[in-house]
Design a binder for these strands. Sequence first.
DNA 1: GTGGATGAG
DNA 2: CATTCTCATCCAC
Length: 716
Amino acid sequence: MCRRKTTKMKRSWQEATQDDSDLGEEDIEDWSSVASSILVSPSSKNTPQQAAFSREHPPLESDHSRTIVHIDLDCFYAQVEMIRNPQLRAQPLGIQQKNIVVTCNYVAREFGVTKLMYIADAKKKCPNLVLVSGEDLSHYRDYSEKVTDLLQSEFSSLVERLGFDENFVDVTSLVEKTVPGDQSLVEVKGHTFGPEGQVACICGCHKRMAIASHIASRMRARLREAIGITGCAGIAWNKLLAKLVGEKNKPNDQTTLLPGSEQKLMLSLGHARRIPGIGHSMNKKLESAGIVTIADLQRASYSDLEAVVGSQSATSMKNSSFGIDNTAVTRSGPPQSMSDEDSFKLCASLNDAKERMYNLLNSLLESCRLLDSLPEAEGIYAMLMIRKRWRTPLTIRLTIRKHSSAKKWLRESRQTQIPVSATEQIKKGIFTVHGPLMEVLLVLFKKMVDVEQSFHLTLINVCLTNFQAKSTFSKSLDKYFSKAKNIENERKSESEQGAADICKKTTDDSTNNPKVLTNQQDSNITQLFEKQGRRPLQTASKVLENKQNKLSFFTRKLPSDVKTTSKSDPHQGDGELSQGERDKTATLSRTRYSVEVKNDKPIDKPEGDISSETGPSFAKSDEVEKDFLVVTSSREQTSEEMSSSSHQSLEIPGNVDVTVFKSLPLDMQADLLREWKVQSTRDMAPEIKTSSALSSQPSTSNRRITDFFTRSKETR
DNA sequence: GTGGATGAG
DNA sequence: CATTCTCATCCAC
């Protein structure tokens, strides 16, 4: 019975979200009564008056059909540094960028150190504060991607990143497949927000939230086991509420929003500014209209609001103020841009600017090179990943910040196409294109700065954007995955899925993994690898990760003398550098460290939570396993695209499983063979791959080690 | 496509 | 207020 209701709700949500423009179905005079009607009965809608209202007013819909978990890592940068150097755990630690403590661990917070505090102030509060430079974000990027990867491969394909330390996970389908072992009321794991025992809604959402609270607990446990990182989780039926409720118990804890308590949650925030999306600018506009608190926002007439912030913002703000948020969790793909920037007190000479631009550019190109240089040795699935990542930027942008005497900290930018000659080089895997790119940067620079006059810059940013799939291979890859993508996004079963259908509604692959709610370690990667032919994505990342751990992937930080090397004549064309010199300069700012991923690392955590969460070893988790049964269907690959061609095994690299290779679509096979050919000729080319640069590894540590494969938004 | 505005962590 | 070092989306041009 409960199931049927769930399905109904879901369908209505899907319909609602399909035509984004016309969701509104409420017909109430003012918005507060809208809110109360929602609270009382979300399914009471579709009266004629409501339809009339919806024509004049933007979307508004209450909807509990989805289940969203928001994961927010605790003081992320500080945690990463503490993993890298466990000695730091016991000490007050601040992460320093220029003059500022951008974040700090909880030990430091005890002393009153806060985020974005000036070093001087922080030192006053805490004289023993240990400072670690956090200007190089590559380690943070790495850990960030590991987290997203884990969530994506073990819990749901629908994971959306927000910055480096937050992820939204849509666990709707996992929840559907997870049924409580005993049919009695499911208890929420961890904290709840809202009055106990209140059941304001009959759609089954309470139960779903409870199930999701256990899933969230597993997520956090897995993040600790596999990566050694702790974080908070918020569980609710939309992104807004999940994010907001998760903050109620920090750090390393979780909070589930009880249906019916969203009003209370929203009002508890106080200021309108606390609503995500309402930044400084919006806030000022709101204040000009006398709107300061969330209650003000709820009370404000729509037309007044629209007059101040425009109709789009008015709608989303109104909705948000009541805890309504219909935006979907959108899978994050690889970044749309890659940039490096440096800020400083003063840059007033062209030569200074040139040198700074060169260093930034160099650093970026090194990132590209490392992304491109992952070895074939990781197996074919890893290769798919790597190749997918293999993208060439077509545009370069230079951004500067002038120190105008006025109180203006505006950034201005100019962008241009990257010279075709350079893109051609990059496509071939040659990243020593500093010369040509410096030239265009110079042109861009002169468009913004009159170098004849005196100038005062405080920031320079170099950005590579407009990525293009680098080879035809990537295109066929896209084609290959677009099918899976559709299954996931549309949540409909496909005819090809055939055989093993335990679940009547098969949805996304990752949730079919029978191990999601178990304690089994993912030791049997190869097993997964072989059995689940459908999942090159996650499997590839597994393989890679495994490899990383085994090979201790990353090289050491370079000696300090590289700094001198890097400064070596910024104005030099690329052709003039020897390979050795290039390697040195290239490794300058993208330093790499060895990263250990330990499963058993003791993590500092506040007393209260430990026992309730993963508690005394795994006793609790075992309980979870008994209480919850994941209904799964291990979908077998109907290798409809099985190759019949007879490829010479000679042409296939030794590390690639021939059977796997042959199971790939033909066009992809062809592409692969072509790639390998190119690759091998390149390997033999005089361009020496120094052992330190290549054999020691593919910087997972650098940009984008993970690929979050197909980007759902990437429809263009 | 470009470049500014705005917002996120 | 931004301050750091990113990244993304929106929108007039």
